[in-house]
Design a binder for these strands. Structure first.
Length: 598
RNA sequence: GGCCCUAUAGUUCAAUGGAUAGAACACAAGUUUCCUAAACUUGCGAUAUAGGUUCGAUUCCUAUUGGGGCUACCA
């Protein structure tokens, strides 16, 4: 039980006794005391006044005095304009430091009585183009959320769903067939996913010309032209051939997909992302089709005049949704229906989380309802973790037009900047190239991951490619640097054979900044829980920045090895080590590694 | 047209309905005989507008305006 609850509990029972009331626990509001006031926790007195029928000053005085009298947890109290600020006795904080220092998993609650089996799907790239900044946010959020849920004691399965079939894939294929001249990624020395992506962009360029021509020369409206374009018709024909398992088309498809997968493997390795299982839509989409047909027999879906199959959701306040095209091929929804069912057969999950952008809010709403209509009880356990788009200063990224910030390019750019910065500062002089590169890798990836994850996932975020991502201030490297400093202290202590871990913490007089640090350390366990409840890696990021900032102030203001008092010196080392451990754990939850030095 | 999300310093981000709205970057000025200056300290500067609920609103509700998204045969 955490301190806030303990205090609230005690305060309520004291209050009830004082004023002969029967308050519920949730009437009493308790918060952490703001830094500019004395005290650790604050009870807001306003809501209590109507029960006590006294002034804030009186209630605060009586409540504070009674709490302090009966319990040595409380060392002091003070009333400031309607707020009762309570101080916790130092011995409580010191005991906490000793305890946390001995727990290597401090912050993680790996035993959870409400343990759930959670399947989390993220990344979900298409094989017609390389990944861009939008995918990066998806990958980082999915990976970090998995780690956070695990830290909350859940059984987490990370799955990737690769969309390796469909009209968009055929577009790349068709363009390559038409204009590729038999070239390969190898012959052109181009990463496979980029190679294929080039043809996707090329298709769209030619398609646009096609459409313009139809409008100008044949007098079509824009809509008609878009539909009637010969190029698009050809791609559709290819998709039908693909669904009929046409040998030539399938061979081409296999080939181009394998190029893309080679590229993706490299990108995932660079990003430090792994999956427990990868599903391919080409292997699951038929299940979706089968389900739709079964439910057609049962009369749960409708068939239009042109033979397309749809479900009418107007009763649920939504529109009609197509499930099979008039030519019998599957749409996105069809696939997701099938995939969900297979997923449940595979894992019998308690919860299934889709990490997908908020542009698909409607899609997942429909998916859930349709599965419910089809009689799948577990559809209520599907959750859409909807995150905001990454926008460029001049608007949304459009991969059709090639207007994107490419994932691989961005990583390379980050590395270059990190290397340049490091050389300027002369930080890693004297290390071997391998050691140096490894540290640079960690720093540049941290800068990128932190930049993305510190933002509330629900919100859209802006990325300006013209301004490179910072390495100073509220950044990943800043936090890594704090860790590296601490690591250096610990190393030195070992060299000097100082065994600070054994230090008993009894009568240490805490400086303000030390106490503040301990309180922040204490918060970590709550932050991990909240981050799990709210699906928000940003909670962890903001927390760890704050902790690092406070530690740097402590490090700057107070002597450690130069402290004469042995007990205090050992205490400060112990505190430092604890902060270092928490930084490491917290960064781990964001998928960020720590360098031993930097 | 309908539905959903969103609006905080010059910029990028914070703030379970609680105290004087926090940071970072940028800008201006300081701190290295001292454990890593990728650090620390100081200054400048913001809740779109109009109502409402409340002891108290950046937070909840309504309207307006701006931005983004979705709206059955793209995924």
């Amino acid at each position: 039980m955490n301190l806030e609850k303990i205090i609230a509990h005690k305060a309520v029972s004291v209050f009830n006794k004082l004023y002969e009331q029967t308050l519920e626990n949730n009437v009493l509001q308790i918060t952490k005391t703001k830094k500019e006031f004395n005290g650790d926790y604050t009870i807001v007195l306003f809501p209590l006044l109507r029960y006590a029928r006294k002034s804030p000053q009186q209630v605060g005085e009586e409540l504070g005095a009674e709490l302090k009298k009966n319990d040595n947890l409380f060392s002091d109290y003070e009333i400031v304009s309607g707020y009762l600020n309570i101080s916790i006795d130092n011995s409580y904080w010191l005991d906490f430091v000793s305890e946390a220092s001995q727990n290597p998993d401090y912050g993680m609650s790996l035993e959870n009585e409400n343990k759930q089996k959670i399947v989390i799907e993220f990344s979900s790239p298409n094989t017609n183009k390389p990944q861009h900044l939008g995918h990066i946010r998806n990958n980082f959020l999915g990976d970090s959320l998995s780690r956070i849920l695990k830290a909350n004691g859940h059984d987490v399965v990370k799955v990737n769903l690769v969309n390796d079939r469909g009209i968009h894939i055929c577009k790349s294929m068709l363009a390559w067939e038409k204009w590729g001249d038999g070239t390969t990624p190898k012959s052109e020395n181009r990463k496979g996913d980029h190679f294929v992506g080039d043809y996707y962009v090329l298709f769209n360029k030619m398609y646009k010309k096609d459409v313009e021509q139809l409008i100008e020369e044949e007098g079509y409206t824009e809509k008609e032209a878009e539909k009637e374009s010969p190029l698009l018709q050809e791609a559709k024909k290819m998709l039908r051939k693909w669904e009929r398992k046409n040998k030539k088309v399938r061979e081409l498809w296999q080939n181009m997909n394998s190029w893309v997968f080679d590229g993706f493997d490299k990108t995932y390795a660079d990003l430090g992302i792994e999956f427990d299982k990868t599903y391919l839509e080409s292997e699951t989409y038929l299940e979706g089709k089968a389900i739709v047909l079964t439910n057609m027999k049962r009369g749960r879906v409708e068939v239009a005049n042109d033979d397309s199959v749809f479900v009418d959701l107007e009763a649920d306040g939504l529109d009609k949704k197509i499930l099979l095209r008039s030519d019998g091929t599957s749409v996105y929804m069809t696939q997701d229906l099938g995939t969900a069912i297979i997923r449940y057969e595979d894992y019998s999950f308690d919860k299934h989380i889709y990490v997908v952008g908020n542009e698909q809010d409607y899609h997942f709403k429909v998916l859930k309802i349709v599965l419910g209509k089809f009689g799948y009880e577990w559809s209520k356990n599907l959750e859409h973790f909807s995150y905001g788009m990454v926008e460029l200063p001049d608007g949304k990224m459009k991969s059709r037009e090639g207007k994107v910030v490419d994932a691989d390019d961005l990583l390379a750019e980050m590395k270059k900047t990190a290397m340049q910065k490091t050389d300027e500062l002369g930080k890693l002089d004297g290390l071997s190239d391998d050691e140096k590169n490894e540290i640079i890798r960690k720093i540049s990836l941290a800068a990128l991951k932190y930049f993305i994850l510190k933002v509330d996932p629900k919100k859209n975020m802006t990325f300006n490619p013209a301004e490179s991502i910072d390495f100073n201030g509220n950044t990943g490297p800043f936090i890594q640097y704090t860790y590296a400093r601490i690591n250096s202290l610990v190393r030195k202590a070992e060299e000097l054979s100082i065994n600070f871990g054994e230090q008993k913490l009894d009568n240490i007089n805490l400086q303000d900044i030390e106490k503040q640090l301990i309180k922040t350390i204490y918060e970590f366990q709550n932050v991990v829980v909240d981050a799990g409840k709210n699906y928000s890696p940003a909670f962890i990021a903001n927390y760890i920045y704050n902790l690092s900032k406070e530690y740097n102030r402590f490090y700057h203001d107070l002597p450690i090895f130069k402290e004469n008092d042995e007990e205090i010196k050992n205490f400060r080392l112990k505190l430092s080590k604890l902060v270092g451990d928490i930084i490491k754990t917290a960064l781990y939850l964001l998928g960020i590694e720590v360098p031993a030095r930097m």
